[in-house]
């Protein structure tokens, strides 16, 4: 099962003179659930942007199932099997909830232009099939009854769920969640965390989670990486992290 292990080593990028991330290494096994935490400005989202091709790393290697991802554009990374959500929600606001999910099936090219223009049987069959799949996914995320609404009219919590649904529709090997619980109330947070572990079991996908809320990360993540000033300061299980003096220092300061 080692074929879709994600591995990064020595990843680094600097903006001008500022080293945003350096020497970042991470290994995520298939169906692993990992957390990435760190104080504000530690470089967590930059790591995500490196992993998804938004930024090109200055150094380092990054592979998924043995295939190098260095130099890939974001859409190529998505095809290779890494999907993500965004910290500041980036939905297609004017499109319907259903269309937002359907968009993720696009890269598999369900039919050709000519099928779409002439409404051939291939178009009708495949389009109906995609819609069924999308609705199924929306049902899982509790959004099926809102499928025809514009995405921008969803509540904040539902928008976060739609982002996850959309990322799952890519059928990724690795799902990156960027602060999925940000801005949710405590009940919604607990629900979301259940959803996250459900997703991992149901879709057999590895998950890497950025989160500020320590309790939540500690609760569900098997391994946690702590980032500060762009460098990894600790790596290990929840218990190890909690007791690590460097982590306590980064979060609470020294006496």
């Amino acid at each position: 099962m080692a074929e879709f292990t994600f591995e990064a080593a020595g990843l680094g990028i600097s903006f001008g003179g500022l080293k945003a991330v350096s020497g970042f290494g991470l290994k995520i096994h298939p169906e692993g659930l990992c957390g990435l935490i760190g104080p504000n400005g530690a470089g967590k989202t930059t790591v995500f942007n490196l992993m998804t091709g938004v930024y090109k790393p200055d150094q380092g290697t990054m592979t998924l199932g043995g295939q190098s991802l260095i130099g890939f554009a974001p859409y190529e990374i998505a095809k290779a099997g890494i999907a993500r959500t965004f910290q500041n929600i980036r939905l297609m606001g004017d499109l319907s909830v259903l269309d937002n999910v359907l968009l993720s099936y696009h890269f598999r090219e369900p039919y050709r232009y000519i099928d779409a223009i002439l409404h051939t049987s291939r178009f009708q069959k495949n389009e109906a099939e995609l819609k069924d799949r999308a609705v199924e996914l929306l049902e899982l995320m509790g959004l099926a009854n809102r499928k025809d609404d514009q995405a921008k009219n969803l509540s904040y919590g539902n928008q976060r769920r739609l982002e996850i649904a959309r990322a799952l529709a890519l059928r990724p090997k690795l799902l990156l969640l960027d602060e999925p619980a940000a801005g949710l109330n405590s009940k919604e947070k607990v629900d979301l965390m259940h959803t996250v572990s459900d997703i991992r079991d149901r879709f057999k996908v590895a998950i890497l989670l950025i989160e500020h809320d320590m309790k939540l990360v500690m609760g569900i993540c098997e391994r946690i990486t702590v980032l500060d000033h762009g460098e990894i300061i600790a790596e290990g299980t929840a218990k190890e992290i909690q007791e690590n003096p460097k982590v306590i220092e980064a979060y609470l300061g020294v006496e």
Binding site: Y75, L91, M92, L103, E109, L130
Partner: peptide, 23 residues
């Protein structure tokens, strides 16, 4: 069609579209 959705996604949010596998 799916091609129309790809075109619309450019207007809506280029970065998100790219991350969802749209060239």
């Amino acid at each position: 069609s799916t091609y129309g959705r790809a075109i619309l996604s450019i207007r809506e949010n280029e970065i998100a579209a790219e991350s969802m596998g749209i060239k």
